[in-house]
Simulated assay, not measured.
Amino acid sequence: MSRRIGRELCMKLFYQLEVNKDFGKENIDKFIEEHSHENFDKEYILEVANKFIENNEYIDSLIQKHSTRWKLNRIAKVDLSILRLAITEILYIENIPFKVSINEALELAKIYSDNDSAPFINGLLGSVVDEIEK
């Protein structure tokens, strides 16, 4: 099972939850059920989604702190979803190196965001990692 597919689905889940402004467990379960025909690591998505829900205020505060030009509500929802996914992995998924999380976030940005998003995401995630490593 491809972790990349899991990340992409997790980003889509975060986007959907943000658009609906409902981060309830039943929405996560419904999303997974709707995508059950796809080959992905269900446990990975559940772990990342649950870690984000448990820690969303802290994760969003990191995004806000390191986003010097934009308030959280002004960041494109796709970019916000990518950032939330990457920061959740960086902080709470121990078996994934920081560089992998950042690289995968950039790959998602290249597919789903505009040309300005990848440098923004890269810079913000780099700042978050620098803070964590201190």
Rank of each mutant, 00 (worst) to 15 (best):
S2N: 06
G24R: 11
D29F: 06
I45Y: 10
R4H: 11
L124W: 00
V129S: 02
Y15I: 08
H66T: 00
I93P: 06
F40V: 02
K99T: 10
S127R: 00
C10T: 15
E18V: 05
G24C: 02
M11K: 14
K65V: 03
R3T: 07
I111T: 14
A86V: 01
I96R: 10
K21Q: 14
I93F: 04
G126H: 05
L125W: 03
E89T: 09
D114R: 11
L85Y: 01
E18Q: 12
E43A: 14
Q16T: 15
E54K: 14
Y112G: 10
F31H: 03
I75T: 03
E107Q: 12
D41H: 09
F52Q: 00
K99Y: 10
D22G: 08
E133F: 04
K21T: 07
I63R: 03
E57R: 12
F52L: 08
E54L: 13
V48I: 12
I53F: 03
E26Q: 13
E89M: 06
A109C: 08
N95M: 06
A86M: 01
F52M: 05
Y92E: 03
N39L: 11
I32S: 00
D29C: 03
F31C: 05
K99R: 12
E38N: 04
N55K: 06
Y112I: 08
S81F: 01
W70C: 14
K134P: 00
G6P: 04
S101Y: 05
N39E: 14
I82Q: 04
S81I: 05
V129A: 02
I87H: 09
D41E: 13
E107W: 09
Y58I: 14
E94A: 11
N27A: 05
I90K: 07
L108H: 07
